[in-house]
């Protein structure tokens, strides 16, 4: 079976600094894949490269076998890849309901329609309501996104990301800054919502990573030094030295 995501020899340079060097990554269909690595390793940059936010200097990215590097973010999104942002990135003046609904519209085929009443689209309404239920924000549906609490904004960020029904979901530190209880809730949410989809997640909390991921890749200085099952990663001496060592102190 073709991999969901295939990154081949990708390099990204800002000026003459190589932030990503010879990045190779293969993520199978339906896999839950975690990317870990120290601060500034290039995890978010990797997300940006895959989702089309920035273009690789060289190398290629494939989604379900098709080359997507060079495509623009909305073209990649229409092919079924959706990503969240490390810093909440939603529509601040619009309500929670409208945020999620906007994320549903393209996928339900309404595109740029200006001849349909957006309130009279049953499938859009149902899907939006279901997502709100899933992210536990139904009671906050009429609140502008900019006025939500931090944890609620993070949940909305996940909601907006999965609302379009993408088959490949990429979450960049979805639980960053959350309390222990909030993290637990968010993780069970992620587990449930990405059932049957491919998940790529960047996460600093090792208990989350090892509890959730089928496979883990370790990124250090823009290069993947190890990729494997949680067991393999735990035993890998290179990882111990470069990353887990300092993390586990």
């Amino acid at each position: 079976m073709t991999a969901a995501i295939e990154v081949r020899a990708v390099e990204k340079r800002f000026g003459n600094v190589s932030i990503i060097r010879d990045l190779n990554l293969s993520i199978a269909q339906g896999e839950r894949h975690a990317i870990i690595g120290p601060n500034g390793a290039g995890k978010s940059t990797t997300f940006n490269l895959i989702s089309g936010h920035i273009k690789p200097t060289s190398g290629e990215v494939r989604l379900n076998g098709d080359v997507i590097s060079g495509l623009r973010p909305f073209e990649i999104n229409r092919r079924g890849l959706s990503r969240s942002f490390q810093v909440t990135n939603v529509f601040a003046r619009m309500t929670v309901w409208e945020n999620v609904r906007c994320a549903v519209l393209w996928a339900t085929g309404h595109r740029y329609a200006f001849w349909k009443n957006v309130d009279h689209l049953p499938e859009v309404r149902e899907q939006t309501a279901r997502i709100l239920e899933d992210i536990h924000l139904t009671h906050r549906r009429d609140v502008p996104a900019g006025l939500l609490t931090y944890a609620e904004q993070r949940e909305l960020e996940i909601g907006v990301t999965i609302a379009g029904g993408a088959t490949v979901v990429m979450l960049d530190e979805p639980t960053a800054g959350m309390s222990h209880a909030e993290t637990e809730r968010a993780v069970s949410l992620i587990r449930r919502l990405t059932e049957g989809r491919t998940l790529v997640i960047v996460e600093h909390d090792m208990s989350v990573v090892f509890g959730l991921a089928d496979r883990i890749s370790v990124l250090v200085y823009g290069h993947i030094i190890a990729s494997g099952t949680p067991e393999e990663i735990r035993r890998d001496p290179k990882v111990k030295e470069a990353y887990l060592g300092e993390e586990a102190h």
Binding site: S51, G52, H53, R72, P73, F74, N77, R78, S82, R83, F85, N89, V90, F91, A92, R93, M94, E98, R101, C102, A103, L105, W106, A107, H110, R111, Y112, A113, F114, W115, K116, N117, V118, D119, L121, V160, T161, A163, G164
Partner: peptide, 30 residues
Amino acid sequence: ALTRTPLGRISNAVRDNPERVQFIGYDPHV
């Protein structure tokens, strides 16, 4: 009526955050 169509709502989204709109399938330019 235009404000209550898919295009109208996405226009609001583009106003609020043109970057994110690209990641829910829309071209803010269009």
